[in-house]
Amino acid sequence: MLKVKNLKAGIEDSQILKGINLEVNAGEVHAIMGPNGSGKSTLASVIAGKEEYEVVEGNIDFEGDDLLELSPEERAQKGVFLSFQYPVEIPGISVSNFIKTSISEQRKATGMKPMTTKDLLKMMRDKMELLNIKNGYLSRNMNEGFSGGEKKRNEIFQMAMLEPKLSILDETDSGLDIDALRIVANGVNKLKNKNNATIVITHYQRLLDYIVPDFVHVLHNGRIIKSGGKKLALELEEKGYDWITKEADNKWDKLKI
């Protein structure tokens, strides 16, 4: 589904991603872990199409399309979804209005008929139940005055409504207490099926207790330095990042010589 090849990208003069290779297939859950500043969020932003980042080399293929040629909205319309680390507050637009606009624009772009208000409301109610969201939420302004947990839950709610093929969850666990974490993780698990894929970006192993990954990648200094199964995450929790980052640094230092 997603093939990232030798991706090098940065912002202004500093290069952040220094050659990322990643392949994600339908039905898989990938976890990307790594210390602060390793490039995790940059990778997520580049896949979603944030324009501040400049791609200098490499490519991203999504189901045969060259993602880097597409605008952020076109990527979303193809089925790429980013759950933001810091969701943006938009005063003046209600959650229901935002989601309605988003769904109708996506359907328009893909040549589908608009959804009736009745169907839309029913779908919203079902998905709200899935995520334990209380009534009254739909008429609140988008993320305005939301707590950290509510903002993250709102991201997953949008994901549930838009039914993307590829979901990238950027630090969805940060700022969540254990109950909220469980609800969000349950939601993600219920939305998972053999046709979609999920990339979970996180610092901590904790989230991976609930969303069990098929693959774990460690990102350090703009490169994936180690990949493995779910056991790798447990190992990282126990030993920290140092043991692999040092190993990798040594290797790159040698190469420079």
């Binding site: 979603a48 199409g49 944030k50 324009e51 605008s71 952020p72 909205e73 990527r75 979303a76 319309q77 979804f81 980013l82 933001f84 969701p87 943006v88 938009i90 637009i93 935002f98 606009t101 988003s102 624009e105 996506q106 772009a109 949008q158 838009l162």
Partner: peptide, 17 residues
């Protein structure tokens, strides 16, 4: 960018904001 990442075109996103 937030709106565009939800599939809303740039002109529409500007209009909504």
């Amino acid at each position: 960018f937030y709106m565009r990442s939800r599939g809303i075109g740039i002109e529409e996103a500007k209009a909504v904001l």
